[in-house]
């Protein structure tokens, strides 16, 4: 489903983010990308989203070469990828409900579909009672659940989460990881970038370890080894 073919990313001579990286991700896999800060995790995800272009090598999403997709067609491809970030990236002027609805509007969905789907995902992430709260009225864990709800509401094929628990305490971290597992069980591929040792060790899923831009390990039931 996702295929990195000898991908390198050189921002500048002093900043080589990825070097000759190759791997494949199958549909419905749950893959963690592990590495210390600056290892190149975010860069890897940005290449998949075509936010950055590789210096060499190719990134495939199914049969699509992500960097040959025309600029105007990119949005359509991106709708098939849900994204979650450490800093949530919610709009402060919109309520939880509106933030999620916004993603559906942007994808061109109709009002009826929105009114039907938004409560469903709010239910799934357990925030039905906080639907009309603004981001300033929600905790970190709740904010991240809204962000996940927004990421899945357009039914993407893959969820890309870049350190989603980076700002959260252990309890909230668990809630988020459980939620991602639940989404994965419902059939969505999940790619999780993190440097949280406890998260990795308890997940017992595939782990790709990156050190200084190179893949050093790729294990089916990986552990945090750094």
């Amino acid at each position: 489903m996702i295929y990195f073919d000898r991908v390198s990313k050189v921002y500048s001579q002093t900043s080589v983010a990825l070097e000759d990286v190759s791997f494949t991700i199958e549909p419905q896999e749950f893959v963690s990308v592990v590495g210390q800060s600056g290892a190149g995790k975010s860069t890897l995800l940005k290449l998949l989203l075509a936010e950055e272009s590789p210096s060499s090598g190719k990134v495939f999403f199914e049969s699509l070469d992500m960097h040959k997709v025309r600029n105007a067609d990119l949005p359509k491809v991106r709708r098939r990828m849900g994204v979650v970030f450490q800093d949530y990236k919610l709009l402060p002027t919109k309520t939880a409900y509106e933030n999620i609805a916004f993603a559906m509007e942007a994808a061109g969905k109709g009002e009826e579909e929105i009114q039907q789907d938004v409560p469903q995902v709010l239910e799934l992430v357990g925030l039905m009672d906080k639907a009309w709260h603004f981001p300033s009225e929600l905790s970190g864990g709740e904010l991240q659940r809204v962000a996940i709800a927004r990421a899945i509401v357009n039914r993407p094929d893959v969820i890309i989460a870049d350190e989603p628990t980076g700002n959260l305490d252990p309890i909230n971290t668990w809630e988020i990881i459980n939620l991602l597992e639940k989404i994965n069980e419902l059939g969505t591929t999940v790619i999780l970038a993190t440097h949280d040792k406890d998260v990795i060790n308890s997940l017992k899923r595939r782990v790709i370890t990156i050190e200084k831009g190179k893949i050093t390990r790729d294990e089916k039931r990986g552990r945090y080894v750094l």
């Binding site: 105007a72 949005p75 991106r78 098939r80 994204v83 990236k89 709009l91 942007a106 994808a107 357009n154």
Partner: peptide, 16 residues
């Protein structure tokens, strides 16, 4: 710009 970057994130088309 925040709204725009989120729109791009969720795959809003350029014309949108």
């Amino acid at each position: 710009r925040d709204e725009i970057s989120i729109m791009r994130l969720v795959g809003a088309s350029h014309s949108y």
